[in-house]
């Protein structure tokens, strides 16, 4: 099983899928309980113009440049949503819808108009997800491990540390943010930090998982775990386990099932992972012990 092909092609894709699923399912819980899941959708769409503008300004696809551009764009999107909500008094759902559309449209426009074809930066990866395109040229060597695996791995560790050390604060702020403020834990500072982390994770997931499919990674594990338990400790743990196991299962299903069925092609891995997460959620919504 551990032959060269597996290590060069499947292993990096699996790692990416698992890391993306794990960090999204942890952070997804925070959006889920704040009833702001769709904010994740708005922010992931706004990664796109950031990449295009960074490319236009910097002239290269160097990862640090892309990361910087995308993060800057997501932060602009956050500010724009806040501005519409507060100064413009636009309902929050509409503010997200507007910012999402404008940012994504700007990305598409600039890409088609200014960049043109031929550059490895296209809308298809953003829309379809391209988990299976990751490649580890010399397996088991750190140097040749794809950069987005390294960065997503670092973010995942950061995430786990956040939930480990600040679990108490997370519980307090999610349950009752006003009270948290009175007890001396500023929810604004905490949530800003979390949003920054979400931004970085979304940038990391951009071309492997895709802007829309990442939403399933954010919401489904939290929603599944919610059908199973009534304690936040369990909720976080279950959602992480569900995220990881569905990533592995989904990847195998996408790449191996069609072959077993006698068809020589594989399916979109990110799509199948999102779909298995969704099917698990449907199952648990129908039969989970804490579904109501």
């Amino acid at each position: 099983m551990l032959d060269h092909d597996f290590m060069a092609l499947d292993a990096p894709a699996l790692m990416l899928g698992v890391l993306a699923a794990l960090s999204c399912s942890l952070l997804g819980n925070i959006l889920f309980f704040r009833r702001q899941v769709m904010l994740g959708d708005a922010l992931s769409h706004s990664v796109f113009p950031g990449l295009v503008i960074a490319y236009l300004l910097g002239g290269s696809l160097a990862p640090p440049l892309m990361f910087l551009g995308a993060s800057a764009a997501v932060l602009c999107a956050l500010l724009a949503i806040r501005l519409l909500e507060t100064a413009g008094r636009v309902p929050s759902s509409a503010a997200m819808a507007i910012v999402l559309s404008i940012f994504f449209a700007l990305g598409v426009f600039l890409l088609e108009n200014q960049v043109g074809g031929g550059v490895h930066l296209d809308t298809e990866h953003a829309l379809y997800g391209a988990l299976e395109l990751s490649y580890w040229p010399e397996p088991f060597t750190w140097a040749s491990l794809p950069l987005n695996i390294k960065s997503l791995g670092f973010l995942t560790i950061l995430n786990i540390l956040l939930f480990f050390f600040f679990f108490k604060e997370i519980r307090l702020i999610l349950f009752n943010s006003e009270y948290a403020g009175l007890a001396g834990f500023s929810p604004q500072i905490f949530i800003s930090g979390v949003l920054l982390l979400i931004t970085l994770v979304l940038v990391g997931c951009f071309d492997s998982v895709g802007v829309i499919l990442v939403l399933a990674f954010l919401v489904c594990p939290a929603a599944c775990a919610r059908m199973l338990c009534d304690r936040l400790e369990q909720q976080i743990l279950y959602s992480a386990v569900i995220g990881i196991s569905m990533a592995v299962f989904g990847y195998i299903a996408a790449t191996r099932f069609p072959l077993w069925l006698g068809w020589e092609h594989s399916l979109s891995a990110a799509g199948v992972i999102a779909l298995t997460l969704g099917l698990l959620q449907v199952t648990l919504m129908l039969w989970g012990p804490r579904r109501i």
Binding site: V37, G210, L213, G271, L275, G278
Partner: peptide, 12 residues
């Protein structure tokens, strides 16, 4: 969010 992303995933 669930319906959006899961239906979209099925489409993809």
């Amino acid at each position: 969010a669930s319906v959006l992303s899961v239906f979209y995933a099925a489409g993809i």
